[in-house]
């Protein structure tokens, strides 16, 4: 079972793109003063990898995601998707934000269809919307409006809205941060399953050590702002993982130590 799951993750390497982050620095201008947020960040993500960025809140990891998504341009440095520089947003790199940010005036189905509609290919590809809704188990809610959904359902719709584009890199910006803990546990397993099935590269930002270790192949730990990489940890455990795994507990302790939070552990 474990071996099978691993094999499955490895059979789709062509779907995911590689991501190279080369000497990225970024800063914000706030009231005339310059606030550095990222300082010479370097790493590269292999195709199909599940990659987690972990760090204290406000350390600049979400900013890094916006750069990867192409929503902002870095002050210096280059980002490469499969070797090509990132110059702007593109549906091969789709973000799931902490808030589902569904469009309240669109039904669930129309929200999921957003990407295909924006790219002008919805008419010929409607079945992809149905398939994406199936994937997150919300086909029955296709005609519901966002205000009728629970938080977990809304976030699943946001996930479907991203997946319908068949992204090469799925960018998850603390997507489970606002959900209750039970829904969070369920959706963590769902995300792993989706990733294994689809084989896209996943970039997850989180400040939840356990979540990063439960989901990711590799975890990068950021220090305080301006963000610099403190550690690059390979999580060498097969899927599906168990939360009680002693190896994960060991990694968790060392990561908390890096963040200066190991006193209570």
């Amino acid at each position: 079972m474990v071996a099978h799951a691993l094999a499955e993750a490895v059979t789709y390497p062509a779907v995911g793109a590689s991501l190279d982050v080369e000497r990225i620095s970024h800063a914000f201008d706030i009231d005339g003063s310059v606030l550095p947020v990222l300082d010479d960040v370097n790493f590269s993500v292999k195709p199909g990898e599940f990659f987690a960025l972990l760090g204290p809140s406000g350390c600049g990891k979400s900013t890094l995601l916006r750069l990867v998504a192409g929503l902002e341009a870095p002050r210096s440095g280059v980002l490469r998707e499969d070797g090509d520089p990132v110059t702007g947003p593109f549906p091969s790199r789709v973000v799931v934000f902490q808030d589902p940010t569904l469009f309240p005036w669109r039904t669930v189905w129309n929200n999921v269809a957003l990407g295909l509609e924006a790219q002008g290919i919805l008419k010929s590809q409607r079945q992809r919307v149905d398939a994406a809704l199936d994937l997150v188990g919300l086909s029955q809610f296709r005609n519901a409006y966002p205000h009728q959904l629970s938080g977990g359902m809304a976030q699943r719709v946001a996930l479907a809205r991203a997946l319908v584009n068949d992204p090469k890199i799925l960018i998850l910006d603390e997507p489970l941060g606002k959900l209750d803990s039970l829904t969070r546990i369920t959706m963590q397993a769902e995300i792993v399953a989706l990733w294994q099935r689809k084989g896209f590269t996943t970039l997850l930002v989180t400040h939840d050590v356990e979540e990063a270790l439960f989901l990711a192949n590799r975890v990068i730990v950021f220090g305080d702002r301006p963000a610099r990489i403190k550690a690059d940890i390979a999580v060498d455990r097969p899927y599906p993982r168990h939360r009680g795994d002693p190896r994960l507990a060991e990694l968790r302790r060392s990561i908390l130590g890096l963040l200066g939070l190991d006193a209570t552990w």
């Binding site: 549906p91 790199r93 789709v94 808030d99 940010t101 469009f103 957003l114 990407g115 924006a118 809205r161």
Partner: peptide, 20 residues
């Protein structure tokens, strides 16, 4: 946030005005 979502999904400026 609505514009960010639409832009990452490949929306052009006309889509942002008319559909967002």
């Amino acid at each position: 946030a609505y514009y960010d979502v639409a832009r990452t999904l490949g929306a052009k400026p006309s889509f942002l005005v008319l559909k967002v």
